[in-house]
């Protein structure tokens, strides 16, 4: 039984309405995620001040530290202070650099994260530029020539590389291209004054590692999405209308495949965001991931929170983007009844 569509007073085009709805949902998710990330500080054990400031910290310095964190205020007030700051680019102050004496050499989190953010985005973008076209090409060709030796060997290879941890791939590449045949630098020492070419050269091994890891996933999922589509009756109909295999894929399958493919890409770029953490550590790449790992080791909570918020936002945004592409390529929404 089909529900009658109730037209509101403000009759938006369904595509716009659906996109707005998705954006709204994304914002709500982001809001809850920020609450979760924020609340984590409340889970800290009570003696945290001593842990950060050292055993020798006086009661006054610990109290001052707690006051600075706002631990004496209600959680709701602190949350809105924090999120208000985040929106304005104020991410708080790092714990590190504090000492029991009360002398504060700590830096602001924004200052710490700023340049690293750029580096991480650069690495992710470089990887995406290599990996996405490559994976799409491999996935589409594997679907086109399915069950040939090409497809089968691609299947076994990707199934194998999916199982590799990032650092395994990274060290193999370092061993081969960094030390045995030293073609590329095995430490990605990216500096601010480098030219684009120098940057790319310095980041090539980390980018290659990430590419190997996500291409396998992306290719398998692209292949599955297309094969799924090729089983639909309208593809059989296209073949029965005498369309060539190439036109069947390009004209009949692909226009309907954008939504699943966008999902595949977004999913893998989101995965990339996470993979970046390990790879940055291996190559000592000065990005947000490495910063976060260091901050976790030293339990520098404000930095951890800021990094987590960054990764989560990137993740939510990418998934949102996939949804939006799926919506705008859906003929049912584009051309309502």
């Amino acid at each position: 039984m089909r529900t009658a569509r109730v037209e509101g007073p403000l009759s938006l085009h369904p595509v716009l309405a659906t996109i707005l709805k998705r954006l709204g949902l994304g914002l709500i998710t982001l809001f809850f995620v920020s609450i979760i990330i924020f609340s984590s500080i409340n889970l800290l054990p009570g003696d945290f001040g001593e842990a950060v400031l050292g055993q020798a910290a006086t009661e006054e310095t610990v109290a001052a530290f707690r006051r600075e964190l706002g631990l004496d205020q209600p959680a709701v007030v602190r949350y809105f202070d924090w999120i208000g700051g985040v929106v304005q680019g104020d991410l708080g102050t790092s714990f590190s650099g504090r000492a029991s004496s009360g002398i504060d050499r700590s830096r602001s989190v924004a200052e710490l994260i700023g340049p690293r953010l750029e580096n991480t985005l650069f690495l992710a973008a470089l990887t995406a530029v290599i990996a996405v076209p490559l994976a799409l090409f491999l996935g589409i060709t594997a679907a086109l020539w399915r069950n040939t030796w090409y497809d089968k060997s691609a299947s076994v290879t990707t199934l194998t590389t999916i199982s590799f941890p990032e650092f395994f791939v990274a060290y193999i590449l370092i061993l081969l291209l960094g030390t045995l045949w030293p073609v590329f630098p095995s430490l990605a020492n990216v500096q601010e004054d480098m030219t684009l070419g120098q940057r790319v050269y310095a980041s090539i091994l980390p980018a290659l590692t990430l590419t190997l890891v996500i291409v396998a996933h992306m290719m398998r999922m692209t292949r599955a999405a297309i094969i799924n589509l090729l089983a639909s009756p309208y593809i059989e109909m296209a073949r029965l209308k005498g369309e060539s295999p190439r036109r069947v894929i390009l004209k009949h399958a692909l226009p309907n495949a954008w939504a699943p493919i966008a999902t595949v890409i977004a999913f893998n770029l989101a995965y990339l965001v996470v993979g970046v953490v390990v790879v940055e550590v291996v190559f000592v790449y000065p990005g947000v991931g490495q910063l976060m790992v260091d901050a976790v080791s030293s339990r520098d909570i404000p930095v951890v929170q800021a990094c987590a918020l960054f990764f989560a936002s990137a993740y939510i945004l990418l998934n949102l983007l996939a949804d939006v592409i799926g919506i705008v390529t859906n003929p049912r929404l584009l051309h309502p009844k």
Binding site: V274, M292, V296, Y315
Partner: peptide, 11 residues
């Protein structure tokens, strides 16, 4: 919506 490795690191 929070990547699992990041969530794990945070916790």
């Amino acid at each position: 919506a929070i990547p699992s490795l990041i969530f794990a690191l945070m916790l």
